[in-house]
Design a protein around this nucleic acid. Sequence first.
DNA 1: GTGTGACTTCGAGTCCGTT
DNA 2: GAACGGACTCGAAGTCACA
Lengths: 69, 69
Amino acid sequence: MENYRKILGRNVRAARKDLGWSQEDLAFETGIDRTYISGIERGVRNPSLDMLVKLAKTLKTTPSGLLEK
Amino acid sequence: MENYRKILGRNVRAARKDLGWSQEDLAFETGIDRTYISGIERGVRNPSLDMLVKLAKTLKTTPSGLLEK
DNA sequence: GTGTGACTTCGAGTCCGTT
DNA sequence: GAACGGACTCGAAGTCACA
């Protein structure tokens, strides 16, 4: 089973760095806690669809895009 | 804001019907409760990433594919 | 065969801190 | 700036009876 938490983590981190943001910046922009962002990027969290949508919007991509390998 | 719960619901229902399955069939194959499947298809639930992965695998698609418009 | 409201339980998500 | 831990709150997970 492919680990989609890891895939999501990689994609979030890449998209965030593309924007030149720190985790704290992304936390502020999304309104999501910074420790939670950290957990998502490390692949240890299991976020809800609403979270994926928030992240995707802020990172200027789509939920679908965040889950592509 | 596009409603990704509805998008997911539409895609799950379409993929399920493509396989000629009832909600009960899908519930059995995924191990998820039938009423929970119903809630996802109607867009009233906010499923986690792990749920999306389970559904995608059983429906022979990908989490990313389930979130495309 | 599906929609729906109500319910309990446990993990999603927040907030504080330290390394 | 980021990883990690503890304690907390609230909503997702999971189930049921009934329409």
